[in-house]
């Protein structure tokens, strides 16, 4: 995810690489808002179109609440990782990065379990537009979590490999921005898809 910027060391002109990267990630997340916005809009359009298949009654709210909580906790560990990196406490940073990745994987495992359950109860992508839009929305969110886990593990790995960079803290911050964004999207999905359906 890191990117070397075309900044010269000429004193006459110097763009702060941290600012450059942070700008880029914010801009990119702006695009992601529209992506999830469109997926959520599709779901809202199709939420009642359950055809002959099951509808929102397949949701196991307590279970999903727990996995949502796990994902929320991962934002906390992410903050701790970032905090450690600003203190240049690399050991602590690695621990929290791995903890975040672990929580993310627990969430993903929960999603896999949940999907399997729904399929057993007769809700698949092809059952109804409700099923199609539910699985595609939550599936794309899951894919984003998976990418986040890879980024977290990659960042931790680079740190383990002993290759510190003066701006490594920035990388953690960038991954963190992405991770928090994915969490916020989940809060929206959990509210709109699960809670408002029941």
């Amino acid at each position: 995810m890191s990117e070397h910027t075309a900044v010269d060391t000429n004193a006459e002109h110097h763009a702060d690489p941290d600012v450059v990267r942070k700008t880029a990630i914010w801009v990119f997340l702006g695009s992601e808002v529209l992506f999830f916005g469109s997926l959520i809009s599709t779901f809202l359009l199709y939420r009642t179109r359950i055809g002959d298949g099951p509808g929102a009654e397949v949701f196991d709210i307590p279970f999903t609440s727990v996995s949502s909580f796990v994902l929320l906790m991962s934002s906390l560990t992410m903050v701790l990782a970032h905090h450690a990196s600003t203190r240049k406490d690399w050991r602590q940073m690695r621990v929290w990065l791995l903890a975040t990745a672990m929580l993310g994987m627990v969430f993903l495992a929960g999603q896999v379990y949940e999907f399997t359950e729904f399929v057993h109860e007769g809700l698949t992508v092809g059952t109804s537009p409700f099923g199609s839009s539910f699985f595609v929305l939550t599936g794309f969110h899951g894919a984003h979590v998976a990418v986040g886990v890879i980024l977290l593990l990659g960042t931790a790995f680079m740190s383990f490999a002993g290759r510190f960079r003066p701006d490594e803290g920035m990388n953690v911050e960038m991954v963190g921005l992405y991770w928090h964004f994915v969490d916020i999207v989940w809060i929206a999905i959990f509210t709109i898809v699960y809670l408002l359906q029941v």
Binding site: S31, E32, L34, F35, T42, R49, G126, P129, G131
Partner: peptide, 30 residues
Amino acid sequence: FSLPMVAVGLFQVYFDRNLGTLFFDAAGGG
């Protein structure tokens, strides 16, 4: 801001064609 919206649509087209989703299938409720 505009590309992500069509990206979602294009994925839906692709899934309708290959995964059997019903986004644009009127008979299936789409």
